[in-house]
Nucleic acid binder design. Sequence first.
DNA 1: TTAACGTCTATAAAGTCTATAGACTAACCC
DNA 2: GGGTTAGTCTATAGACTTTATAGACGTTAA
Lengths: 153, 153
Amino acid sequence: MITKKTKYAFKALIHLAGTPSGHPVLIADLAESENIPKKFLEFILLSLRKGGLLNSRVGKGGGYSLALPADKISVGSIIRILEGDFAPVQCLSTTNRTRCEECKDEETCGIRLTMADVHAVLTTTLGNLTLADMIERSEQARKKLRNVVDYCI
Amino acid sequence: MITKKTKYAFKALIHLAGTPSGHPVLIADLAESENIPKKFLEFILLSLRKGGLLNSRVGKGGGYSLALPADKISVGSIIRILEGDFAPVQCLSTTNRTRCEECKDEETCGIRLTMADVHAVLTTTLGNLTLADMIERSEQARKKLRNVVDYCI
DNA sequence: TTAACGTCTATAAAGTCTATAGACTAACCC
DNA sequence: GGGTTAGTCTATAGACTTTATAGACGTTAA
């Protein structure tokens, strides 16, 4: 289950993707329009910037904007920045890899060997989905709904 | 990331799968041989029993045993019993489905629409992997290691 | 009827997630 | 260069979840 922090990040990124580039968005504006606690959002945006997904400009006329086009920002990279990783078990993590404390033999651990499959599938799926997909799917759903409404009228 | 509770469950189930059927295993023995806090394990085994994966017998000569053959126990069902679900977002949960608090429009939510893919992939993967797979992979890894060792000698 | 064994409720300890406060630094504009 | 705008950073508090323990109770076999 992804955390609220990550969901806030998705919302913020989707919002930023929808604003013309070169027009940085203020934390305060983003917080208000997406209903995210401002101070919490500050921290989230900072993480995303450090992760290379956002650019920021300090001072008047400053704010945040995407560092990459939306179709180059994978859902996986967003999750990795905010949750650290999405490995099902610690010993499979690519970023924080450590032993699973109490796993006697990592090499023959059935849990690990099985979860490796899950991890691989997740990595592929989350790596292929992008911010642009998120936006596109949302728009298509909106369009579909509108058509249904039109049809009803 | 699966919790310790679920990992303990995997270990316990693997252990139970390795004992001849009709021979119930004591919580205390299981706790000791798998290095799991006994009282915590009690609760885990109880959950697994209520989830239909284990049989138990109370009283002298009692204990726990698998309620199904190992190849009929999916990894997904184990996780579902202990973690409630593996949906990436609340609104996609099959067991505890509720709105995502603050999601204005579920039907056009890009996060939900995208995560639905992830959920589907996870459901398939975790549904196809079984306790028997876990055991088999562990054994194969052990065999492989032994061969390498033999070869070295 | 007694010893073996699982069941259940309550609760404590530790860790993580969510949120907030406030001081600080950088950039812009006059 | 001084005021204003805006992001940066550190610390910390509250709520919730995970992990673990204690103890009383119910059930079964011999």
